[in-house]
Design a protein around this nucleic acid. Structure first.
Length: 813
RNA sequence: GCCCAGGUGGCGGAAUCGGUAGACGCUGGGGACUUAAAAUCCCCUGACCUUGCGGUCGUAAGGGUUCAAGUCCCUUCCUGGGCACCA
């Protein structure tokens, strides 16, 4: 190190990476204050790294290196989300084992990550498929079970009747199994659930505290949780009540039928009706995907059963439909065709009555010939409730029903409890045992982990765990009699819901789940990942975090303080994917250009949150810029290596217009770094460099500005800046430097500014005047400006709007 | 269908608080250097009208608020993400 090389090559990058490794720059002292925990969503090892990963992990690395330069002790870990369905598919395809495929991919990606030079603390690397990881997941599940956060109930899944296996939603294509082509059926099976709804209120309320998250993600979560205040209403039926939930109790008098799910227990009594049974069967031959349910053709059939309207006593027909799902709510909804779009369409289709009970509050005409009237308004045809506004009526009707014991006010969430059972092999075994005498019994803590057996043969016909007696046969932890293990495994979202905490303590292995480091180092200061995780992963993690807090395992309320959701990488306007054949292999690019050029382009080409269009021309441009920077450093070597005193240089040039520009650019770079807008950090670096190239004389200013430039660019192009730094300046890493806060640089002393002049709101010219000029002086300057004069000629000034340092708008008549 | 984003020159994008639209870069054109090419450097590059000076239009489309709108409000269109078993 220390010798200026004539050209920048991949050898330079490898040498720098070796230097960082020797210096141990990326393993923080966990006892220190000034911590900064930066985390990128860990990778699912489905093959090699693709451009989306390069973008994701570069973003995390930029945050990390920026914070190191700001003086923080940065922890940036790396790991692998190693359980999952694709491993099973690959194993079937290649007649191998999910583990083999997974570890092979991990090895390849690990090599690629190292080549990228990310500032990772490799000493805390974790793999979720290792027993030392998932044993604590099993342990956490047992603790949640003890706390009453776990229960078992039946729920519907996609069943492939030919392959005799449960299908993931993505394995259902147009209602058929992807491998067999058979029509998929809904099948109800028992599954383990986590009570995320117990935390619904807190998950909602704490969104307001997550000010470091994009507003759009918070909005999405708010809508996903979907808190609503409504009324549970009982419709009397033969032998019981049919419960429905509505947020529009004001429309209750407009109910003309009740719709129930095909699985509803009311229908059991009607099994003798052949036509009805056939229809029920047809309804069950659809997927459970909500988007499909919402868009498919709505079908229904009159069951012949009648429900009694809780207020009028009227007999209302009960219809079975394909769009009401048993798992959501009570599996029944009241239908008000006049005031609900879906009910309206359904009523039109089957000739059911449409009874108007709401009219517009402002008395404007309202026809129900073409469409439902779904707004709130004023009640009509509603007996004693007629004349009330919708809002008043909702309360009045709810009060009436409560008094009559036919209903009650109810807060309802759209959020449903989390089904964590998967009928798959490559996942964490659920630590439960089934005993004929004791029922479902949790595994004893001392018997953890329940190890996933790997000496199995993997085939297409269902989970090998179900066929493995060695795995299944055990004894009941309670009574000691022979019993059977649960053969389902956890949803892989469970692993990704607590890994951020385990990273800190991964080295404890089997000794403990966490130690005091989680109290000092959580929450994660900056989290980076795809926006596609806005609701599920990010909500599950928040839930598990709160559950861990209530178990005394962690101490803060939220796991992630700041969140950046990065956009996709596109080529020719569409997402890069193998199936579309439009991928760019990052490894080939790195070989051709080097890591930093790829990093620089990918940061420069688009703001992190937006999608990024791949461009060959763009990467060549980035290569050109960095080459210019390198060549400039070689050319100016004598000046730059001269060890000029740089401490108070900017003060000396405080009144120089050149310094005003430097200051403005640095302030922009600084702000953009803070808000994670790295594309303009890159362009700011280019501007600063252009300034440097144009600078003549003033070696001390050049020297000081150049040092600033290397520090500013370091997070984006760490290898190049480190190589130049070591060659020209100190013999220690650039990361030991401090990023100058914009407020620590001297304020430029220029007293004038240039601003636009409008006449009647249209831009007509610019004037340069003192920053402290008043309106009269500004007007005078405008009136003596040739271009502006042209538009003021022969007019009378009516009004002057003057916003100092921004705009002068002269209104004339 | 529902929820959430995005739409600015030939292209990627900038404009942080409603105040000079198009920074920075790419592409293209012209020039310098060279026997020549590459590399490099310099100038031009939103559209239309105009010999020029200059003017008009212009941020998906339409409307509105404002002295002033890419930015705020309403409507529509298009593209993308999510919709609970891909991760």
């Amino acid at each position: 190190m220390g010798v200026m090389e004539k050209a920048y090559t991949s050898d330079t990058e490898l040498a720098i990476q070796g230097f960082w490794e020797r210096e141990k720059l990326f393993s923080p002292d966990f006892g220190s204050s000034d911590k900064y925990y930066c985390l990128s969503m860990f990778i699912y090892p489905s093959g090699l790294m693709h451009m989306g990963h390069v973008r994701n992990y570069t973003l995390g690395d930029v945050f990390s290196r920026y914070q190191m330069l700001r003086g923080k002790r940065v922890f940036q870990p790396v790991g692998f989300d190693a359980f999952g369905l694709p491993a099973e598919n690959a194993a079937i395809k290649h007649k191998s084992h999910p583990k083999t495929w997974t570890y092979k991919n991990i090895d390849a990606i690990r090599k690629q990550f190292k080549r990228m030079g990310f500032a990772y603390d490799w000493s805390h690397e974790l793999l979720t498929c290792e027993p030392s990881y998932y044993r604590w997941e099993q342990w956490l599940f047992l603790k949640m079970y003890e706390k009453g956060l776990v229960y078992r109930k039946n729920t519907v899944v996609n069943w492939d009747p030919v392959d005799k296996t449960v299908l993931a939603n993505e394995q259902v294509i147009d209602g058929r199994g992807w491998r067999s082509g058979a029509l998929v059926e809904r099948r109800s099976i028992p599954q383990w659930f986590l009570k995320i709804t117990d935390y619904a209120d807190e998950l909602l309320a704490h969104l307001d505290t997550l000010t470091g998250w994009p507003e759009k993600v918070r909005t999405m979560q708010r809508n996903w949780i979907g808190r609503s205040e409504g009324v549970d209403i009982d419709f009397a039926v033969d032998g019981g009540v049919l419960k429905v939930y509505t947020t529009r109790a004001d429309t209750l008098m407009g109910v003309t039928f009740v719709a129930v799910a095909a699985e509803h227990e009311l229908l059991k009594a009607l099994s003798g009706n052949a036509a009805l049974s056939a229809f029920v069967k047809e309804c069950q031959q659809t997927t459970v995907v909500e988007a499909d349910l919402e868009t498919m053709e709505k079908k229904g059939m009159d069951t012949g059963l009648r429900a009694i309207h809780p207020i009028t006593g009227e007999r209302i027909p009960i219809w079975v439909t394909n769009y009401v799902v048993m798992d959501y709510g009570s599996g029944a909804v009241m239908a008000v065709p006049a005031h609900d779009t879906r009910d309206y369409d359904f009523a039109k289709k089957y000739g059911l009555e449409i009874r108007q009970v709401i009219e517009p509050i402002d008395g404007r005409p309202c026809s129900l010939d073409k469409t439902a009237f779904v707004e709130k308004g004023k009640l009509v045809n509603s007996g004693n409730f007629s004349g009330l506004t919708s809002d008043k009526a909702i309360d009045a009707i709810a009060d009436f029903l409560e008094k009559e014991r036919k209903g009650r006010k109810q807060v309802h969430f759209r959020l449903r409890d989390w089904s964590v059972s998967r009928q798959r092999y490559w996942g964490t075994p659920i630590p439960m045992v089934y005993c004929d005498a004791c029922g479902a019994v949790p595994v004893s803590e001392k018997d953890l982990p329940v190890v996933l057996p790997v000496d199995i043969e993997f085939t297409a016909d269902g989970s090998p765990l179900k066929k493995s007696d060695a795995f299944k046969q055990t004894v009941c932890p309670k009574c000691g009699q022979p019993a059977q293990r649960e053969t389902d495994t956890f949803d892989t979202f469970v692993e990704s819901s607590w890994y951020y905490a385990r990273f800190l303590c991964e080295d404890l292995k089997n000794k403990a789940m966490f130690d005091e480091r989680v109290h000092h180092w959580l929450p994660v200061d900056q989290y980076v990942g795809g926006v596609e995780h806005a609701c599920m992963h990010l909500l599950y993690s928040r839930f598990i975090h709160k559950a861990m807090r209530d178990l005394g395992l962690v101490s803060c309320d939220e796991p992630f303080t700041r969140l950046l959701t990065q956009g996709m990488v596109l080529k020719d306007g569409v997402k890069m994917s193998k199936s579309k054949g439009n991928t760019i292999d990052p490894e080939a690019l790195i070989q051709q250009y080097g890591v930093d050029i790829v990093r620089f382009f990918i940061m420069f080409a688009a703001p992190p949150e937006q999608s990024l269009e791949w461009s060959q021309g763009g990467i060549d441009g980035s290569a050109r810029f960095l080459k210019k920077l390198w060549n400039f450093s070689v050319e100016k070597h004598d000046v730059l290596a001269a060890n000029i005193a740089h401490e108070k240089v900017f003060e000396k040039y405080q009144a120089d217009p050149a310094y005003a520009e430097i200051y403005a650019i640095w302030a922009q770079i600084h702000d953009d770094m803070d808000r994670g807008q790295f594309n303009t950090v890159a362009s700011g670096g280019m501007k600063l460099f252009n300034l440097l190239v144009a600078m003549n004389g003033n070696d001390d200013l050049l020297y000081a500005t150049y040092r600033l430039l290397l520090i500013g660019l370091h997070p984006l192009v760490p290898h190049i800046t480190e190589a130049l730094w070591l060659a020209l300046f100190e013999n220690q890493s650039i990361l030991k430097q401090r990023w100058p806060h914009k407020n620590d640089l001297p304020k430029p002393l220029d007293t004038t500014c240039t601003m636009g002049v409008q006449v009647n709101g249209k831009m007509r010219g610019t004037i340069t005047l003192s920053k402290t000029a008043n309106a009269a002086e500004a007007l005078l300057a405008a009136q003596s400006n040739e271009k502006v004069q042209h538009f003021l000629k022969g007019t009378k000034v009516v009004k002057v709007i003057y916003v100092p340092q921004k705009i002068l708008n002269v209104i004339v008549a």
